[in-house]
């Protein structure tokens, strides 16, 4: 019994630190933490596909960016009605996943990767070219943060936005934790290991993967919404292959199929991007080099070697 208390204590300690940090950090670093949390959600959502289903999506920015565009467009051009815009953007991100999932899940492995990439780049092209609706290459600047006045909650100051993001981050972690421990999560991993066996056992393989694809899309959409409100703008790069590849690297860097891995990966990459961008414009070059190094030197991720030990604490 003693062992099972440790993770709970660690989680509570972690949460306490995350809750206190804005009191001691300047607003610049609080903003950086917001970005870390958002990409943590984004990376966790991709790990549901990559780690638990074995589906390597290279188009995960599709749901993220679509939700960001819908939230931004509605807030800027229709009304700054946060609950409605949130719901509409979530729906749009989920709908993109539902459509792309239908097409991409007809294939596996490298085909799947290639098709998710191609589909998401088509959306990027649309955002880039359809100037009248999306603002083209410049995107849409000046998107206001939600003001939930009926709840007495104004999310404009970065500290309140941080707590809002943190709350949703914790919610996503709890939901994801329940999901991957549920019979559904076990079935997904069964399918990842052997599709034919699960099929023979009577599991509807396609439906499991399709549902997982949509759930991953919804979580990515949530990250996209949080991202657009935090940055006050959305641009085609939020749908671009670079964004998809970045979040994929976060998951691989941390270690697929682990709970902490994607969050760790997101933290490292966001911090590194921030530091590198401070003194050079060659971020893409650095990102490429990290890709090569991670694949050549640590293909199982940083948590890979520790995985056996972590398995005691964290459900896989």
């Amino acid at each position: 019994m003693r062992r099972s208390f440790l993770p709970i204590i660690l989680v509570i300690a972690g949460l306490a630190i995350l809750a206190i940090l804005p009191k001691v950090l300047t607003s610049y670093y609080v903003g950086l933490l917001v970005t870390v949390l958002i990409f943590g959600i984004f990376a966790l959502s991709l790990d549901l596909l990559l780690g638990h289903c074995g589906l390597p999506s290279l188009g995960h920015a599709a749901s993220f960016g679509t939700a960001a565009y819908v939230a931004g467009f509605l807030s800027l051009k229709i009304a700054n009605n946060a609950p409605v815009n949130f719901a509409a953007a979530l729906f749009a991100g989920g709908a993109v996943a539902a459509i792309f999932g239908l097409l991409a899940l007809r294939t596996r492995g490298i085909y799947f990767l290639m098709i998710t990439l191609a589909l998401s780049q088509v959306l990027w092209g649309l955002a880039f070219k359809w100037k009248s609706a999306t603002g083209g290459d410049d995107g849409m600047p000046g998107i206001p943060r939600p003001n939930l006045s009926m709840l007495g909650l104004d999310l404009t100051p970065v500290n309140s936005y941080y707590y809002f993001t943190l709350a949703l981050f914790v919610l996503v972690c709890i939901l994801m934790y329940i999901l991957i421990r549920s019979p559904f999560g076990h079935s997904l991993r069964g399918i990842r290991e052997s599709e034919s066996r699960m099929l023979a056992l009577g599991y509807n393989v396609w439906a499991h993967q399709y549902v997982a694809f949509i759930i991953a899309g919804l979580f990515a959409a949530l990250a996209g919404i949080l991202y657009v409100y935090y940055n006050n703008m959305v641009s085609p790069k939020d749908l671009h292959l670079i964004t998809s590849a970045k979040v994929l690297l976060m998951v691989i860097l941390g270690g697929t199929g682990t709970f902490l891995g994607p969050i760790l990966g997101a933290t490292l990459i966001v911090l590194l991007e921030n530091i590198v961008s401070g003194f050079t414009e060659r971020w893409l070059l650095i990102l490429g080099i990290i890709y090569v190094l991670v694949i050549m030197l640590a293909p199982k991720g940083l948590l890979g070697p520790l995985r056996g030990r972590l398995r005691r604490w964290i459900p896989m």
Partner: peptide, 17 residues
């Protein structure tokens, strides 16, 4: 094979930049 494909993403960024 998947690792090979992922490696080529790195080169896409490196060569482009």
């Amino acid at each position: 094979h998947l690792a090979q494909v992922l490696l080529t993403i790195g080169f896409l960024f490196i060569l482009g930049d």
